[in-house]
Design a protein around this nucleic acid. Sequence first.
DNA 1: GTCTATACTACGATAGAC
DNA 2: GTCTATCGTAGTATAGAC
Lengths: 207, 207
Amino acid sequence: MTQERLLETALDQFGRLGFDGASTREIARASGTSMSSITYHFGGKEGLYLACAHHITEQIRLRQAGAIRLAREAPSLGREELLERLLAVIDDVALMMLHEDSAAWSCFIVREQQQPTQAFELLYSGVMEEMLEGVEAAIGRIRPELASREIRALALTLFGQVLVLRAARATVCRALGVARLGEEEGALLRSQIRTNSLAILTGGTQS
Amino acid sequence: MTQERLLETALDQFGRLGFDGASTREIARASGTSMSSITYHFGGKEGLYLACAHHITEQIRLRQAGAIRLAREAPSLGREELLERLLAVIDDVALMMLHEDSAAWSCFIVREQQQPTQAFELLYSGVMEEMLEGVEAAIGRIRPELASREIRALALTLFGQVLVLRAARATVCRALGVARLGEEEGALLRSQIRTNSLAILTGGTQS
DNA sequence: GTCTATACTACGATAGAC
DNA sequence: GTCTATCGTAGTATAGAC
């Protein structure tokens, strides 16, 4: 119970303040326990940080099960069906990026991208890799003329469109003239991302 | 001279470690001076941080003059010409994101996006706003059927594609199987971004 | 398992000599 | 302008009581 409270608090603090910015004193205090509980349950600050990375990985796996399944199911799906599935996966990621629950995770991950630590390895091999494989499998069948490196580049730039919702959140809010992204702004951006993705994925083959 | 060295060092340290992670002791040491020089020249740690934001703003203005000019020149340019100019602007941003020089700036900005401080205000009104206006002016003429909010959403998602080069750098490197993004990977990603952007911008009107 | 108490290090700011 | 010296605070880790 103390362990769970500590993890929850740590996720919030590490997300908002980063590894250095967060303090074990404050995490323990906000969890209603003492600093030495962190040593007991997680071995120290770093162990707590890695436990957060593991927890984030599991939460994303739950929410992005569709993308992970896609890697296995892509070979047996038709082209039209795959396109729709892929657009749904991109929208799932966009929804996750928009949702308030993911704020701490997103900050955590964006920090790790700038200066990867052991936690990034947990995140990448724990969930990102499989999600990318799913997206790439779908793209490979939708656009069979593309080379493997092009498929990869396409998958990454598609993700970029949704990444902007978190990685440039402050700019998005300022550009749209709002303090926080609400339902309306979320719908506008998701719709635009869907339109863009459709144009990108069918641009070379349909007309 | 001491002032310049301090600014340069601070840019690197704040970029890599964030405001909390960086220490004035280390910045002074690496600049070959003493902590109290920071107080003398910048008033303190926060003043030094804001001076970094101002410096980044000026550097980006220099490198993205094309985007800033676009806002003024868009009305007098033809549709085909505007499309090419816009693709060039996007490529300029991509080049900046790929270039090693921008690593510290990018980290600095990405951090500010997660937890905006006064420094974000400097960055946004100092350069981001004008760049967005340029891109929106071009999109507005290329796709005259779009509403103003759609134009804005389109501008933001277009930027997302290049943002991925910095904000998800670690994932991009892992996905491409390299330790650092070299010439080859940069060319691949820039080419993909250009293809995507072209499909997005002409998707609704040409076929 | 969880607490208090403490050891040790590093932080930013400031005073005052030069 | 730049230095040294120092103050007060806050960081993590650890020892030992319960």
